[in-house]
């Protein structure tokens, strides 16, 4: 567990500096842990495990969008756990769970197990993207899906380079908000 924390924190620090490979590896490893965590939690309160993938993706998005709130002087595990638990409670409230109590555990629990058996979530990225304003949609598509540089994306979308960055950021935030509003059944 301790080596886990050290490795994941190193990945986090690198990804905060903009290292894409570290970020990808970090999110990948966190998502398998989140999957095990959510599947366990949902099974424990009698919910179907298929919802777990929705939650994994909500949490991964939140970790990505809120990564600037991570205090680099602190360990990573409690930060991830706080987000994971917040998203679980929020999800249960939204899906009108019978106010099932989510007990507070040790933060380590979220890192305790891996689960690599990913299924597809109920979110349809294409359909969600269509609901974004045109500029955001174009910027996210160009930069995040097609992997264009900021300059190329700026040309394609008719925006300035800083406009592209702003629209990518807002676009992802809006996607997260759309996902959070969509109550999967």
């Amino acid at each position: 567990m301790a080596t886990d924390e050290i490795q994941l924190k190193a990945l986090m620090l690198a990804s905060l500096d903009g290292d894409a490979a570290s970020h990808r590896l970090l999110l990948d490893r966190l998502s398998s842990r989140l999957r095990a965590y959510y599947r366990g939690k949902l099974a424990g309160i009698g919910r179907v495990a298929a919802e777990a993938e929705d939650l994994v993706q909500e949490a991964v998005l939140a970790i990505h969008l809120k990564r600037d709130t991570y205090d680099t002087g602190e360990p990573l595990t409690p930060w991830v756990y706080a987000i994971a638990r917040y998203k679980l409670v929020d999800h249960l409230r939204r899906t009108r769970a019978s106010r099932a109590d989510v007990p507070i555990e040790e933060a380590d629990e979220v890192m305790a197990h891996d689960d690599h058996n990913a299924v597809e979530s109920s979110y349809d990225i294409g359909r969600l993207m269509e609901r974004l304003p045109k500029k955001m949609q174009c910027a996210v598509e160009a930069v995040k899906l097609d992997g264009l540089s900021t300059a190329e994306a700026a040309k394609r979308c008719g925006l300035s380079e800083s406009g592209v960055k702003v629209n990518v950021h807002r676009g992802l935030r809006t996607l997260a908000a759309l996902i959070a509003r969509e109550a999967p059944t």
Binding site: R24, D28, S31, Q57, G147, S149, L172
Partner: peptide, 15 residues
Amino acid sequence: MKTDDLVALLSTNLE
């Protein structure tokens, strides 16, 4: 959506 796809999307052109 697959979680792998989401992770790939979020990591592309990371700032």
